[in-house]
Amino acid sequence: MARELRPGQRKYSPGSIAADAVLVGWFIFSLFPLVWMVLLSLKSRSEQISTYFAFTPTLENFGTVLSDEGTRLTSVNFTEALLTSVINCVGAVIVSLVIGIPAAYAAGRWKYRGSNDVMFTILSFRFAPELMVIVPLFIIYNQLGIFDTNVGMIWVLQLVTMPLIVWILRSYFQDMPAELEQAALLDGYSRKRAFLMVALPLVRPGIAASALLAFIFAWNNYVFPLILTGSRHTPVTVAVTRFLGGGGQAYYNLTAAAALIAALPPLLVALSIQRYLVRGLSFGAVKS
């Protein structure tokens, strides 16, 4: 049963036990806030300010957050916020896929003049300070009447989803040998059919991974909706913060419940695409 050792791996020794201890230490640090969030979300109103770990768990906070009661306390309907987040993120990802797949394909398949300019301009969106764009957009949106709308959010979320999808997919298209599609052309398929029959199925894992990762980052975005939405189409990230300071009253247990609900979708999605995560997080720069 002796496994071969990878570079840098060592067999068991006192040193390796110490190393495991350090790892366990990190993971206590890493997971404690999440555990605490869950515990707090299960505490009743009267116990919310206690710092004890022993208490009588209740699920009533989730009911409160998702009901009119929560809306009354925060002036944001959390159920609608969830729906808004889903619509915005799914919409933004679909738009990015529809626009991004052809562009990623063109950039991965051909060298054409301006190809790098297009790609790097798209990448620069990822690194541009958001407020540089938001302030003018705030004014433009008000003029166009799309302030605090899903359309407005889907547009601006392209800054988050587009670079991710285009860059990841380009790296997938580059990895796919051109001769596969050429073979399809010679088999008598048009370029469109060759793309659909050969290229698309092969990059399907890349499409799924990049779309889901883009979904996560769109979901987690805060600064765009903070400024570009009001109270009607607020997504969950903004809605969660409303529980913190509702009229001088603090609702820690409700905040924790709302945070937990808001954090669950990205966590679940992330765990499902873990295998593709590294390539996605590095925009295709690191392949694993």
Binding site: P177, L180, Q182, L185, L186, D187, Y189, R191, V198
Partner: peptide, 18 residues
């Protein structure tokens, strides 16, 4: 276009649809 030329090609890399 290639698909209208009536040629068949065996690629050195095989180019089989995986």
């Amino acid at each position: 276009e290639p698909y209208e030329r009536g040629v068949a090609m065996a690629f050195e890399s095989y180019a089989l649809y995986p």
